[in-house]
């Protein structure tokens, strides 16, 4: 695995955000806020944490990343393309007829996706089943990561899995919750209160780490720390800003399920390319 400085990872994250905006504008539908907020989670995983080979997506010793909240798949497609799984040009086929980049991820269409998701709440238990299979095959050194949304935690299936994982003493599994506080109908605490989220997971038998989910250094530290926790499974509650990087999208639940139109995309890209004026943009 190549080593990247935090600064390099930040620049990659910025490029991925631009790709997400372009993909969504071109597709004309899709979710904006979640994917933008989760960029650092995916960059940390694909560039620093996962043991994987982009040129061999089915490599038998790879770590497994399961995306439970399939609606956020644009961030995964964009990060996979940047990491070398496929050409970035293909990103523009998102949601188009015949594409490998379906509106919600389908394992059978794109190697490297690991599972098919969209209907919420099903990723953690699939990860649990996979962990049990690894145990039977003495492959417990392979680690399994599951990214979930916070709105997704309304699903009963999540809590069935939250009980199941500690019951079977699975400790090569890390759950990541994108705690961005929004879901389609509004703020999570208005729609269906989740707090005290840390206490909930602790009481279910999980080791809980809370981090700034848009801070690469904190995320990478948390992933490393999770390897040292062997008596329990780990859940990382990653506090993120929905729509991160684009001022008019940040913290606004209206952007949960909407794409930018052309004008909005131009505005967003301008903002991203200059990093809010901190760097000089390259003219694209």
């Amino acid at each position: 695995m190549q080593d990247y400085s935090i600064h390099e990872l930040e620049l990659i994250s910025n490029e991925i955000r631009q790709d997400i905006i372009k993909m969504l504008e071109h597709a004309g539908s899709g979710h904006s806020a979640g994917p933008l907020g989760e960029v650092e989670i995916y960059v940390a995983l694909y560039y620093m944490i996962l043991n994987h080979r982009p040129s061999q997506p089915n490599w038998s010793e790879r770590d497994v990343l399961i995306q439970s909240n399939g609606h956020c798949v644009p961030v995964r497609y964009a990060t996979m393309a940047h990491a070398g799984y496929f050409d970035r040009q293909e990103l523009q086929t998102l949601r188009r007829f015949g594409t490998r980049l379906q509106g919600h991820p389908e394992r059978m269409r794109l190697p490297g996706l690991e599972s098919t998701s969209g209907p919420l709440g099903c990723g953690l238990s699939q990860a649990a089943g996979l962990a049990l299979a690894f145990r039977l095959d003495n492959q417990e050194k392979r680690r399994i990561y599951v990214v979930m949304g916070d709105g997704e935690l309304d699903e009963g299936n999540v809590w069935e899995a939250a009980m199941f994982v500690p019951r079977h003493k699975i400790n090569n599994l890390v759950a990541i919750i994108d705690r961005n506080n929004i879901q389609i109908d509004g703020p999570t605490e208005d729609v269906m209160p989740l707090e005290d989220l840390k206490a909930k997971w602790s009481s279910f038998g999980w080791h809980v780490i809370e981090v700034d989910g848009n801070n690469l250094e904190d995320l990478i530290d948390a992933f490393h720390l999770s390897r040292a926790i062997i008596e329990k499974p780990t859940v990382i509650i990653a506090h993120t800003i929905p729509g991160k990087g684009v001022d008019f999208m940040e913290q606004d639940f209206a952007w949960h399920g909407s794409p930018p139109n052309h004008e909005q995309a131009v505005k967003a890209l301008h903002e991203l390319r200059t990093l809010k004026g901190k760097i000089t943009s390259e003219h694209l």
Partner: peptide
Amino acid sequence: FEIGVAEQNLATVGSGLAAGGK
């Protein structure tokens, strides 16, 4: 593997086990 009274988990843990070649 005992799943408990949790049929949604039953199906999805099954999916994960199959993903692991079982």
